[in-house]
Design a protein around this nucleic acid. Structure first.
Lengths: 346, 346
DNA sequence: ATGAAAGCGCTAACAG
DNA sequence: CTGTTAGCGCTTTCAT
């Protein structure tokens, strides 16, 4: 027979041992209601609980309070190195507050997303953190309707003005463009990521907005949009950029994968990076420092992003009066070897 | 006020709508007990449930059945690229069976491990999957005692003969040594990982056992044991190997990180890989193919390992009569550019 | 300050 | 075949 966890001591046991009623025991055990109980009684109850190693049963409690101390975390794909640190940040913040995350992968697939959402909702999560990157999202409205508390991570302001933590894309872009300008680049290309996701969208907007004020070439042909983050896409688009009449002297990519593709295209064109052309990635994925040449990239504070989003959620969960708006965390440009001074010959 | 998920339709609602008693409704909704109920009644109940979008409340059910349909997954660190695919495999298998994983990171820290274990146990998980790599583990005994169903992943046979999925280390090692032999290597060094973890332990044993029968040099000085998987450790130990009177012509490392360290040591010694010396890693971490030279490594079937361990757990959970023993999954040698024919000059 | 009792949603034992 | 009932563990009125 499939055995399952033996039941431990119940509140009833504790009450009995302390010689009080379960109601009294319950009060004594609850921080906030403890004062409603005699000081010595409380002490006895606590002692009894301690002695029996009493753990409140979450189902009994949940049934009564309609809360699970649990939150759903919807993430596109744990296998994408962008997310694990975020999830750890979420986990750490949540755990510290006595909440447990329920993590589900969505693969950015609406159907899977819906299933995961339903599954977690039916598990009575108290709220959700959407790490999923789609900009428009039907689930958000539905979740709000169901009375669930929400927070976003890695997404800019949503229509619903939900609390969330996101990257300060303008700051990141400003650092990278300033770096390139200093190296003498004026004509810099951009390989954008899929625009239905929030970060790539904002990143491209930031590029467009910032290059104007920074004496960079405003040629619209310098911007290409990838349909995915696949290396092959980066390679193809960078190839187009390089084949143009006036190719850029530097390429900024929306993430490290695309940057890898750019590197491939550059090699394919018989050029050398950074001698002939510079490349900047984004996210600083593991081993980005070990490829050749080591990738200059924008490091986003993944852990802190996760942590912050969880804190915002908790705020909504505990304090009420939902915290509004998006907290922007500033990324750091990590200068390595794919960026260099503009080559004399070009 | 912190709102929380509204309650949906209850069994009571469904019963009422179908004009039957809750008990009947319960029976009709339960696959196995459905036959105890009139065919048309069942149909009415199902229809009512459908209409009301009824979702059974897990707490009500759990309180009664003493099961949560939930399993704890203890993993050292999601941030280590070895684990996310494993976790996805676990998630996929578990989800398909109606179970939800509760994931906790332990950092291989006994205290954190204990906390996570307690937290999950008090959340009433029905079982645990230990992806944590320590060979000896006090928690295992305790979990078994509490009547929890267990499975291991990435660990060889334990004292308790628990079901689990692990890498067939001998097969992996045989492929890599055969490959090296074919290239002419006879004197191959080994940089082992921390021996208190199961895979590095088994991997080293496999190396030791196999090199005998494969006409490889049995020099004990050829084997070094790292205290951690840090790149710096790999570098230091490989450095020792290279500084020996008769250095190896190839080095096998217990994982890719250590292999990276070996590459550093080789460069530092003024040697070239693979011209002067070959290196083989293990795990095939992301971008292992993009470093220079591209790393020859052993790819372990992470996803399948996770999946298999979850299936074994489910078997123990549902069928009872725990499945015993360890399933061994065969890894694949991925030959890239850090291995080459033994150099004539040495 | 404490106790009695109800009830959250569900299943199972027992009647009919 | 279906209904009645009890009770899983907990919190929360309502009494006292």
């Amino acid at each position: 027979m499939p055995r399952t966890g033996e039941r431990g001591a119940t509140l009833h046991d504790v009450a009995e041992r302390a010689g009080v009623n379960v109601a009294t025991a319950s009060r004594a055990l609850n921080e906030e209601r403890r004062q409603l109980v005699g000081a010595d009684t409380a002490k006895r109850v606590l002692a009894a609980a301690e002695a029996l190693d009493y753990q409140p049963h979450p189902f009994g409690r949940g049934l009564k309070t309609n809360r699970s101390q649990t939150v759903g975390v919807l993430v596109p794909d744990l296998t994408n190195p962008l997310y694990p640190p975020i999830v750890r940040g979420i986990d750490d913040a949540l755990s510290a507050a006595g909440y447990t995350p329920l993590i589900a992968n969505t693969d950015n697939d609406p159907e899977r997303e819906r299933q995961s959402f339903d599954a977690l909702a039916s598990r009575q999560v108290d709220g959700f953190i959407f790490a999923t990157a789609l900009r428009r999202h039907p689930l958000l409205a539905e979740a709000a309707e169901r009375g669930l508390t929400l927070a976003l991570v890695l997404r800019g302001t949503s229509a619903a003005r939900l609390p969330g933590a996101a990257v300060d894309e303008r700051a990141g872009m400003r650092s990278t463009l300033a770096h390139l300008r200093e190296l003498g680049h004026r004509r810099v290309g951009y390989v954008a990521g899929p625009q239905e996701m929030s970060p790539p969208y904002e990143r491209r907007r930031a590029f467009l907005a910032l290059r104007k004020g920074m004496e960079l070439d405003g040629d619209p042909d310098l911007v290409r949009v990838a349909r995915s983050f696949a290396i092959a896409d980066g390679r193809r688009l960078a190839g187009e950029l390089l084949a143009a009449t006036r190719p850029p002297t530097a390429i900024v990519a929306a993430n490290d994968q695309l940057a890898l593709g750019c590197l491939d295209a550059i090699a394919e064109a018989g050029l050398r990076c950074p001698r002939d052309i510079s490349v900047v990635g984004c996210n600083d994925m593991p081993l980005a420092d070990r490829i050749t040449p080591a990738l200059t990239t924008v490091r986003v504070p993944q852990y802190e992003l996760g942590r912050k989003s969880a804190e915002l959620l908790l705020q909504g969960l505990e304090a009420g009066g939902d915290p509004l708006g998006t907290v922007r965390l500033v990324p750091t440009l990590i200068i390595r070897h794919t960026t260099g001074a503009i080559s004399g010959g070009r």
